[in-house]
Nucleic acid binder design. Structure first.
Length: 815
RNA sequence: GCCGGGAUGAUGGAAUCUGGUAGACAUAGCGGACUUAAAAUCCGCUUCUCAGCAAUGAGAGUGCCGGUUCGAGUCCGGCUCCCGGCACCA
């Protein structure tokens, strides 16, 4: 008698969809927005993807059974490079390739039996979606949060496009099959002003108690707030001055030089016409040609500009250098060099024989600059610092900052590491930037009524040539100015796909709305996301910051009423095969469809869930499959065999010899309920195994036994929904278990009536005694001292004391 | 370098929050039952060392060293290694 998964799974999938069990309630009484991160349609889905969907599904079904009206949607992050690269390689249009992949993946997903409301499926590359992506761009534009500037940006020579900071990892392209070394290029590009929200993005993290600490820490580091002080240095014989940012104003008396970033625009004015001009120009040219990796790895160097600046604290003249270890984008792109107390400045000073002046001493020793081999960067006591001498660093930082503020030569300042989000991409397969350039009117946004700006289909050449392929499509690029009606040109770039994913969770709420991206009513009904289930921590400093940023902007503009998108975040560990992440490009995937046809969706689900806790990485192994298959068949046999003894009501009058089993059943309900709530699916399934094993060993097949079987069927339903529904109908249940209330338990039968007390002597386990629950310490001692195993160890010893923890342990301390 | 997280049988993992029988549950392995046989199934054993024919007994054991405690996988201090993130951020 073997369970036939193929027929049963088909049957129940049909039942669920015919009865609209997963169609979202229009007017939820108790809403629960359960969201799994949507996916890129790279081909068919494999077991690596399936993990996310299965885990999201267990939670969704559990919440449904707890009486929530669950919104559980799915969709596709459908724009992006792979589709376009495929088009270049084999000539299939990106749209066709993408939509074909979506069709195949949807089919596999449906085989898995995930409880999605398919009527809300969202596909970001379709015009009715990207119309609103463009609308978002314009909203930001109108708020002054989207702007165009000429800047040094990350250029990926492999993808032939620019990238955001978040997409550069160790100086290389983030795409796993690219990884090209990123170059710097000076280009005119669109940015989103996420830095305006730096403080709120940082502050908001404190509210997100349902987010994992590591993600919050990563975001804090990424935003990189640092409290410090601005200091103004005047340039000698010039009316120019520089503001530098420092976190250590207490070291101001130790400044012996200054450095400017090579890209700094004022360098030009500084050296123009001087004898140093040629050398400086040459240095700048070399520096800007280098990649970030080369710049970091090479020895620190620079070039003297011939100019000097005045230290506002001691009025000393210090030389100004151009040095490529100074970053243009951080602070003001100018730093004060304090070699004694900053190791980079130290290296630089050594190379160019600049003075090293100690102005901070460690708490109980004295530094001698000649014998220093590296900078002393810790806090200490100020020395050689005029009137500030003797102050601690902490006090000095405050005092110097106040002194500068009073003299209007600086003052308190805060800097963030976070940079504005570069969203232009020189590629075809993305949402077009809805901007028009008119010779007369300048930059003109496309009016809302003219959205969407459609991607042209009559494109012949997708190959990027340093600019967007769209630039060559005459019919697209040439247009008329919405303001003056004259001839004008469209922006040829498309948007970063992370723009699409910054608001997709809102479109699910109202996916067919043609007048708004989402009505306020729907937004207020469903937001925030109650549980967000993410694909891994690689999104921590990308998507998970971007979507928080969008939420805040939409909240400020009153389109939605929440300023954080998701209350709880659960980050999943990846699925590995042979020690590597399961991915198509590595060729180590286990295709979902194939696996399900062979073993069944429920086996696939149980295997994923039981292998490891969801947040941990999981090595896919075929051995796990054996266990899940056995689990299902074992339950199946037991239920079929004892169908007639199954009891649907909680038995009353529990006989003495049934008590232990009845307690086990109640404990299992309690444990599974708790574990599912906190995503501990592996131990939840282990608890079911325990109950199952106990039922197999049960000698008596009475009411309690029958109720045990009934309970297992119920508890199984989030994990193996087809199988559970089939068993449910076999025992005469109506419809599907998702329509049934989740079982409760009897608190009177959670604790065992007897307790095994461990008897220790000097902390070593010597015996176990079984006692009736709550008995007096004296009683326990009496039994323990009567135990021969205990007596053996007490012979000839003096008892010093005993420690008794009720129902747990008795420790006898002897000498 | 800085910030996280981790290290437990042959393997995946449990117990770690809140100190109280370490190894739940599964896999693999071994033994038994059933079978002409195999598979499947059911039952049992399975951390290591030593003693014993055996029942059993003794000792050791959660990366390493130390501490707190009657008692530490769990708490504290110091290391080692692994994984992830950040990193010329002034």
């Amino acid at each position: 008698m073997k369970y036939d998964h193929a027929t049963v799974e088909k049957k129940w999938q049909n039942y669920w969809s015919e009865n609209n069990l997963f169609t979202t309630h229009e007017k939820p009484k108790k809403k629960f927005y359960n969201l799994v991160m949507y996916a890129y349609p790279s081909g068919d889905i494999h077991m690596g993807h399936s993990k996310n969907y299965v885990i999201g599904d267990v939670y969704a079904r559990f919440k449904m059974r707890q009486g929530y009206d669950v919104l559980h949607p799915f969709g596709w992050d459908a724009f992006g490079l792979p589709a376009e690269n495929q088009a270049i390689k084999v000539g299939i249009p990106p749209e066709k390739w993408t939509l074909d992949n979506i069709r195949i993946s949807d089919e596999s997903l449906k085989l898995l039996g995930i409880s999605y409301d398919w009527s809300r499926e969202v596909i970001t590359c379709l015009p009715d979606y990207y119309k609103w992506t463009q609308w978002m761009f314009l909203l930001l534009y109108k708020r002054g949060l989207a702007y165009k500037k000429e800047a040094y940006v990350n250029w990926c020579p492999g993808c032939q496009t620019v990238l955001a900071n978040e997409q550069v990892i160790d100086g290389r392209c983030y795409r796993s099959n690219c990884k090209s070394v990123i170059e710097k290029r000076k280009l005119n590009q669109w940015f989103f002003k996420i830095t305006d929200y730096a403080e709120r993005l940082l502050d908001g993290l404190n509210k997100l108690s349902g987010w994992p600490e590591n993600v919050k820490t990563m975001q804090r580091n990424w935003i990189g707030k640092s409290d410090g002080c601005d200091i103004v240095f005047k340039v000698v014989d010039s009316d120019m001055n520089f503001t530098v940012f420092t976190t250590r104003p207490d070291t101001i008396y130790g400044v012996t030089f200054m450095s400017l970033a090579p890209e700094h625009p004022v360098v030009e004015d500084l050296v123009k016409g001087s004898e140093h001009e040629t050398a400086v120009r040459q240095y700048i040219q070399e520096a800007t040609k280098r990649t970030e990796i080369e710049r970091i790895e090479k020895e620190k160097d620079g070039v003297f500009t011939g100019c000097y600046a005045i230290n506002p604290a001691n009025h000393e003249k210090v030389p100004i250098f151009v040095a490529d270890y100074v970053l243009l984008e951080y602070g003001s792109g100018v730093v004060m060099g304090v070699p004694a107390h900053d190791s980079r400045d130290f290296q630089f000073a050594k190379k160019y024989n600049l003075p090293i002046r100690v102005v901070i001493n460690p708490p109980d020793s004295e530094l001698i600059s000649e014998s220093m081999t590296d900078a002393y960067e810790d806090f200490g006591v100020m020395v050689n610092s005029g009137t500030f001498t003797g102050l601690s660093s902490e006090a000095g930082i405050k005092a110097v900052t106040e002194f500068l503020a009073a003299k209007k030569l600086g003052g308190p300042s805060i800097n963030y590491r976070l940079k504005d989000w570069l969203i232009s991409r020189q590629r075809y397969w993305g949402a077009p930037i809805p901007i028009i350039y008119c010779d007369k009117c300048g930059i003109v946004p496309v009016p809302d009524a003219q959205l969407p700006v459609l991607l042209p289909e009559d494109i012949k050449d997708y190959i990027p040539k340093g600019k967007s392929p769209l630039a060559a499509v005459e019919s697209y690029i040439n247009t008329t100015c919405p303001q003056c009606g004259g001839s004008a040109k469209r922006d040829a770039d498309t948007m970063d796909t992370f723009v699409c994913s910054s608001w997709y969770f809102l479109r699910y709420l109202d996916p067919k709305n043609e007048n708004e991206f989402c009505s306020k009513t729907e937004a207020d009904t469903w937001l925030p996301i109650d549980q967000y289930i993410g694909g891994g921590s690689e999104h921590a400093t990308g998507h998970l910051i971007y979507f928080r940023f969008f939420t805040k902007v939409l909240c400020d503009t009153d389109y939605i009423s929440v300023d954080e998108p998701a209350m709880k975040l659960f980050n999943l560990g990846m699925v590995l095969k042979d020690g590597e992440v399961m991915s198509k490009s590595k060729g180590n995937t286990v295709p979902a469809g194939q696996f399900i046809r062979k073993h069944g969706a429920d086996v696939a689900r149980l295997t994923i869930l039981f292998a490891a806790p969801p947040e941990r990485e999981m090595e896919w192994s075929d051995e796990g499959v054996t266990g899940s298959e056995r689990f299902i068949n074992r339950i199946y046999r037991l239920v079929i065999e004892h169908k007639s003894s199954i009891v649907k009501d909680v038995p009353t009058n529990i006989a003495q010899d049934d008590e232990n089993l009845f307690i086990k059943i109640n404990q299992t309900i309690a444990k599974v309920t708790d574990d599912v709530e906190s995503f501990k699916f592996n131990t939840a399934i282990a608890a079911l195994w325990e109950l199952l094993n106990e039922l197999y060993l049960s000698k008596k097949q009475g009411d309690v036994f029958g109720y045990g079987l009934f309970t297992i069927i119920h508890l199984l339903s989030p994990f193996a929904p087809h199988f559970a529904d089939e068993l449910w109908s076999l025992i005469g249940g109506e419809g599907s278990l998702v329509e049934q209330e989740w079982p409760g338990y009897d608190v009177k039968y959670i604790k065992s009536k007897t307790a095994i007390i461990v008897v220790q002597i000097n902390g070593k386990v010597r015996s176990h005694i079984e006692v009736a629950g709550a008995i007096a310490e004296e009683e326990v001692k009496k039994i323990a001292f009567g135990d021969h195993r205990v007596q053996r160890h007490l012979e000839g010893k003096t008892i010093k004391k005993t420690i008794y923890v009720p129902e747990k342990i008795l420790n006898i301390v002897v000498q």
